[in-house]
Write a protein that binds this DNA or RNA. Structure first.
Lengths: 137, 137
DNA sequence: GTATATGCAAAACTTTTGCATCCTT
DNA sequence: AAGGATGCAAAAGTTTTGCATATAC
């Protein structure tokens, strides 16, 4: 992702937008809150206002560059929309986020929706529990 | 549900709690925000403070009497925990909430979790789209 | 040069908390 | 009588907005 993605989205290539994009691409942690992004930039010589970070992330979401998640109890987090669609497992002990795809689940969502004459536009599936490391043996 | 459910949950039988319980049981709409509950009580001779509604709903959640949902973009909503487990479809046009259960989906959640050595404690599956009435033909 | 973007501070909105008072047991 | 529950107002946390200034094209 680079400035051409911004242009395509109808967004001017500005330093704040490039910085946010770069954080999203290079951060070790894939799911970041607006404040996470803001804080990563604080060390930076020219940091951004938190309001700008929110505005940029919202524009990115509208442009389809990022996906916003509202996981339980947390503030909103954002991830780059650069992978195939996937759902999430979240470890309630260490916070780790595991991404997964399950075609059977996807298919059955469609089937159950059809059964109710419902047209799916989007869905959100999140499993909460403990990961390999955090599950007591 | 009545005062005995409160006692069992270790909660004193108070008027505010009974009122909230009664709203949850008798409201036409099943999924209510704290403010929805608060507003239904405003006409009432003795209404409750919003803070009390939040406290009561939180206690009910801890006691397992209600389930709290954080649907996308909305404030938290609460529903009585009096049905079997189920997931939700939400019409993004009319706000209607349809409850459903799909054993295949449940099963495949377990399978995919196992594959990742993940132990599910809870999950949240919500389909967003348009219902029968709101889907353009 | 013009339109759009940003920064800052203030506002908005949801939810929680402190504390004095009241109610249930 | 004692402990827990409530109301009110204030605080906290997250996200949005108004407006003057700065920046991209």
């Amino acid at each position: 992702m680079d400035s051409s993605d911004l242009k395509q989205a109808g967004l001017k290539t500005t330093l704040p937008r490039l910085k946010v994009l770069s954080i999203l691409e290079n951060s070790k942690i894939r799911h970041l809150s607006a404040e996470d992004v803001y804080r990563e930039l604080l060390n930076d010589e020219t940091s951004l206002g938190l309001a700008t970070v929110y505005r940029v992330l919202t524009q990115f979401e509208e442009a389809g560059l990022v996906i916003r998640h509202n996981f339980e109890g947390e503030k909103a987090v954002f991830e780059l929309n650069d992978l195939e669609h996937h759902d999430h497992m979240i470890c309630i002990k260490c916070g780790r986020v595991i991404e997964f795809v399950d075609p059977s689940i996807e298919r059955h969502q469609e089937l159950v929706a059809e059964r109710h004459d419902f047209t799916i536009q989007d869905h959100s599936l999140t499993l909460y529990g403990t990961c390999k490391t955090c599950t007591p043996a």
